[in-house]
Design a protein around this nucleic acid. Structure first.
Length: 602
RNA sequence: GCCGACAUAGCUCAGUUGGCUAGAGCAGCUGAUUUGUAAUCAGCAGGCCCGGGGUUCAAAUCCUCGUGUCGGCACCA
């Protein structure tokens, strides 16, 4: 085992520094522990820089940190580097590693450093951000880099790595700055760990909802339709309809009323709401009869108009309106990504108009609603409170009150949350729900937003006990976020193997021969009666072929029927997961399906 | 929007340094076969090679402008 660093007072110190300062502490060996990988990957980033410098001598380097999924280095060179060059760089890295250069460290003054890197404007940029008078330099062979470490003692220890991606990145993460080249990589202490990681990446790729959506015929996109406008195919339509209907019932149980606003509204209204000023660049507008209309990017204004349709008493509150609201938002081209980021989507949107003293109970009720849904789909989740953003309407005081109200509701009910400073909506602070899927990735879905501003802007009111006019509070909330995004996430979460209750097709029926078609149709009708969709595979293919075809659709259950089954009024079931077969009477079978579909209640 | 890559049949992909009639598998259609748990056999059809414009005797192939997709960055009210 190689000692690569020590841990002293919780701090990781590389061997170079430890020797220099005479420190001693707990030894860190080269293995796949987080501390060890951090050092290894950081040094691998340097080795990559060394290789790049030798291949592209004019290269200048910015920063090369370790990140969650490995490491990267940002640099600039006059040469054009593409995906194909990664292999070449890897090869060069290996050949340097074989030379087993020691990684040496020394300190110099900031002025000396500026002189040393005077030809590298990126390094000078880095130094501008370092407040100290001295900096440390790490040297391996001819290559020297400004760095605070920690590093491996020897680059010969770097053996199992892979350069994974090449992309552009803004200097300092600011889109006003120049764009640099960024190469991502990953490194491990053992060959097995690297292999496992690559397998995991392949698994994530297999689950990609864009690929599965295409294979399973859920949805598609077409160039001639326009970027970011999804087309729902029959199978996707069925899946979506199931989700919608489950959720409809759940809303009704909780006292929400279905309503619907128009797809576009006069721009004057968007000016009143503040969307025109704060969100206009993402909106689609159209002019007709000398009037300007804005296609809705949110549903709140429509729901406000529903609220305004009659006078409300304090006794009526809370009033809850919900709508599967279709919205259009002009997202930037580079942001579009399958169903995850689109320009037209449907939100499971609702607005709760309530009294100030009802805020807490309403927030808690929504949080509970979220919990029911997310746990049904086996998602872990966490909540974030987002505060006032740069672009915002309303006074600081109102923002302070509403942010505090959200925190109070969470604190009082001992719900854990994190703070996202400046991440709120322009009209109010929000609680975002971030879910974690089956392979550990995080997604932002639902959101609960507290809004004092729109009621003010639209002069909403209700009659109080003294027959006085009081302004209601508005809570905007979506639980799935959007059907598009949520179905995309579900697809990856389940790797396409949707549970029975939302699966596009519940059962595939395969008659052994043509003579069994009639019974198949009979079964299929009985399934429709219990709200289950089935598909009969009657094509003139071998039995084996039809089973294979059905399996590939990832249908939860396949039933085969032949002479046996018809005689005994049974079905032969083949399970998707286990591929085992068993027989059930027709009655038992229908009951099983019914149970599986109805087992879910949000 | 920015950096880079890519776009060939419904889908997945071949297509030599620009050069004969642009190919394959799957899916589709037709016929034979009537099947007991992951691919029966044979035949047929299917293409404005993403769209404009250009270079060339000759363009799927080279250049250019769009459109779309992918990987990141920035964005995500």
């Amino acid at each position: 085992m190689n000692e690569i660093a020590i841990k002293k007072d919780g701090e990781i110190i590389d061997t170079q520094t430890a020797k220099e300062c005479g420190f001693e502490g707990e030894q860190i060996h080269l293995d796949n522990s987080p501390e060890s990988l951090e050092i290894l990957r950081h040094s691998t980033a340097h080795l990559m820089a060394q290789a790049i410098k030798s291949l592209y001598p004019d290269a200048e380097f910015y920063v090369g940190p370790v990140v969650k999924e490995g490491f990267y280095y940002d640099f600039k060179t006059s040469a054009e580097i593409g995906e194909g060059d990664l292999k070449k760089i890897e090869k060069q890295m290996l050949s340097f590693a074989k030379k087993k250069y020691l990684i040496e460290k020394y300190e110099i003054s900031m002025d000396e450093a500026k002189e040393k890197f005077k030809d590298d404007h990126l390094k000078l940029e880095v130094m501008k951000r370092i407040p100290s008078d001295t900096v440390s330099i790490y040297k391996q062979g001819e290559f020297e880099d400004l760095c605070r470490g920690p590093h491996l003692p020897n680059i010969g220890l770097i053996r199992y790595f892979k350069l994974t991606k090449i992309a552009g990145a803004y200097l300092g993460g600011d889109s006003k700055n120049e764009m640099l080249t960024r190469i991502y990589g990953i490194a491990f202490a053992t060959k097995e760990a690297l292999k496992e990681h690559m397998t995991m990446l392949a698994e994530a790729e297999k689950r990609d909802h864009r690929k599965l959506g295409n294979e399973m015929k859920l949805f598609t996109f077409r160039e001639e339709v326009g970027a970011g406008f999804p087309i729902w195919l029959p199978a996707g339509g069925r899946l979506r309809a199931r989700l919608e209907s489950l959720l409809f019932k759940a809303h009704r149980k909780r006292g929400y009323q279905p309503v619907r606003g128009p797809e576009m509204l006069r721009s004057d209204l968007w000016k009143t709401s503040g969307h025109y000023q704060n969100y206009g660049e993402n909106m689609y507008f159209t002019h007709i009869d000398e009037l300007e209309f804005g296609v809705k990017p949110m549903n709140c204004v429509g729901h406000i108009k529903v609220y305004e349709d009659e006078l409300h008493s304090y006794r009526d509150l809370p009033i809850k309106y919900f709508e599967y609201g279709v919205v259009h938002r002009h997202e930037m081209t580079g942001a579009l990504h399958g169903l995850f980021r689109v320009r037209e989507f449907t939100q499971d949107d609702a607005h709760i108009f309530c009294r100030a003293d009802q805020i807490e109970e309403q927030i808690i009720e929504v949080v509970d609603f979220v919990d029911k849904i997310m746990s049904t789909f086996e998602f872990d989740y966490k909540m974030m409170i987002s505060t006032k953003p740069e672009k915002a309407v309303g006074s600081d005081e109102v923002w302070e009150i509403s942010t505090q109200a959200l925190k109070n509701a969470m604190d009082k009910n001992e719900l854990a949350y994190e703070i996202d400073e400046g991440g709120g909506a322009f009209y109010g602070p929000k609680i975002d729900i971030k879910i974690t899927d089956a392979i550990g990735r995080e997604w932002q879905c639902g959101t609960i937003q507290l809004d004092f501003n729109l009621p003010e802007r639209f002069h909403l009111e209700y009659n109080g006990e003294e027959n006085d006019k009081i302004q209601p509070v508005m809570i905007h909330r979506a639980i799935l976020g959007s059907f598009e995004r949520f179905i995309g996430i579900l697809t990856e979460h389940y790797a396409g193997e949707f549970p029975m209750f939302i699966s596009p097709t519940q059962v595939a029926i395969i008659p052994v021969a043509q003579t069994h078609k009639e019974y198949a149709k009979l079964l299929s009708d009985k399934l429709i009666d219990i709200n289950a969709d089935s598909e009969i595979y009657v094509k003139n293919d071998s039995l084996n072929k039809r089973i294979r075809t059905a399996e590939k659709t990832r249908v939860p259950m396949i039933v085969v029927i032949g002479d046996e089954e018809i005689k005994n009024k049974t079905v032969a079931i083949r399970d998707r997961r286990t591929r085992e077969q068993y027989n059930l009477s027709e009655e038992e079978f229908l009951k099983l399906i019914q149970t599986k579909i109805n087992e879910v209640n949000f």
